[in-house]
């Protein structure tokens, strides 16, 4: 063995094997942390102020129209189980509601995030695969077939429970009702509309034929291919309202975008004045203690109104500054005796 060289076993003398790799060895000492905190704190306070002010400029108008209170205009509708009940809500704006105005409907105590509910859809149907029209996936049950065992398209709980109240907004100018045009385009995700959801290919030039042999979801007043009679491109699975509904909300209290007000005289916003909103009240929520509301809001670059983000930045920023001051005091007082140990 000795003949093979005296140091055959000698380990390599490299930085890696000897654990001598060059390394940055930061120490979280007061000297670094105090100025660091100060800088971060001040920056956060700055951001916080900006965010808070931005958030403050956003106007929000919320109106509950569930009709729980007996004196509310929609009480009547909430009591009856009859369809096509209409009620009217009036409100007035004392200053311009700057546009573009977003028009939401809101539901609370509504669990779109229930697991069984969430999986109750057939993606293959929704991507236009007609094979699955006749035999929906089992996850859709009990919303796969109707009583006569005909397949439901689109199947599943989500589709079946689609929100079906509709609203019309009027500005009252000198006693006459002036319809405010609502823009229902582009309220769903672009990718949902253009890629993820697909209508079945037309049969004999008509979408309706593609749905032959299927029935509409039980709760729907109209079949999928006839959701929007005014716009043929807004039908089937590519109906904007349908797409909005299919994107499940994360929490039991949520809003969903209904329309935007971007057109005509109202492109700059809703001018001050009196308004009236006609609600076609269809959707039952009182059975599960739910509430319905409409919300008008405008948005900034950071989204809807959210004071919390600005406040959070302000609080954390101030804490940083305060802590750096405290540390400075401690540092000065105790001289950090061990600093030179």
């Amino acid at each position: 063995m000795k003949n093979e060289g005296e140091t055959a076993q000698r380990p390599d003398n490299t930085a890696f094997t000897q654990q001598r790799l060059p390394a940055w060895q930061p120490i979280l000492s007061a000297g670094i942390v105090i100025p660091g905190f100060l800088v971060i704190g001040l920056a956060f306070i700055g951001i916080g102020v900006g965010l808070f002010l931005t958030s403050q400029t956003i106007q929000v108008l919320e109106m509950d129209y569930t009709g729980v209170a007996t004196d509310s205009s929609c009480f009547r509708c909430s009591m009856t189980s009859s369809q096509n009940c209409t009620c009217e809500i009036t409100f007035s704006l004392d200053k311009l509601f700057t546009g573009p105005v977003f028009f939401y409907y809101g539901l609370s105590n509504y669990y779109q995030n229930f697991r069984k509910y969430g999986v109750s859809l057939d993606y293959y149907q929704l991507s236009g695969d007609t094979q699955y029209f006749t035999s929906p996936q089992s996850v859709c049950s009990p919303y796969s077939y109707d009583n006569q065992n005909r397949p439901i398209v689109p199947c599943g709980a989500i589709a079946n429970s689609m929100f079906n109240d509709t609203f019309e907004l009027y500005q009252i100018i000198n006693g006459t009702k002036n319809l405010v045009p609502l823009d229902g385009k582009g309220i769903a995700w672009w990718t949902d509309y253009n890629i993820k959801y697909r209508n079945p290919s037309f049969v004999n030039g008509s979408l309706a034929n593609a749905f032959a042999g299927t029935v509409k979801p039980i709760n729907w007043p109209k079949p999928a291919y006839d959701l929007d009679s005014t716009d043929p491109n807004n039908n089937g699975f590519l109906n904007q309202d349908f797409l909005v509904w299919m994107r499940r909300a994360a929490l039991p209290q949520f809003r969903k975008l209904y329309r935007r007000i971007t057109e005509g005289n109202y492109a700059a916003g809703l001018p001050a004045g009196n308004y009236s909103m006609t609600v076609h009240y269809n959707y039952p929520v009182l059975t599960f203690d739910g509430r319905k509301k409409v919300v008008f809001s405008n948005v900034s670059w950071m989204g809807g109104r959210n004071d919390f983000l600005g406040i959070a930045y302000l609080v954390v920023g101030s804490l940083c500054v305060v802590m750096s001051i405290i540390m400075l005091i401690v540092y000065a007082k105790f001289k950090f005796s061990d600093d030179d140990a």
């Binding site: 939401y104 995700w189 209290q253 949520f254 989204g303 809807g304 109104r305 959210n306 919390f308 959070a312």
Partner: peptide, 14 residues
């Protein structure tokens, strides 16, 4: 921050 699902909104349409 999510709030009622409106506050944090994606700039959805590319």
């Amino acid at each position: 921050l999510m709030g009622e699902d409106t506050t944090l909104m994606g700039n959805g349409q590319i």
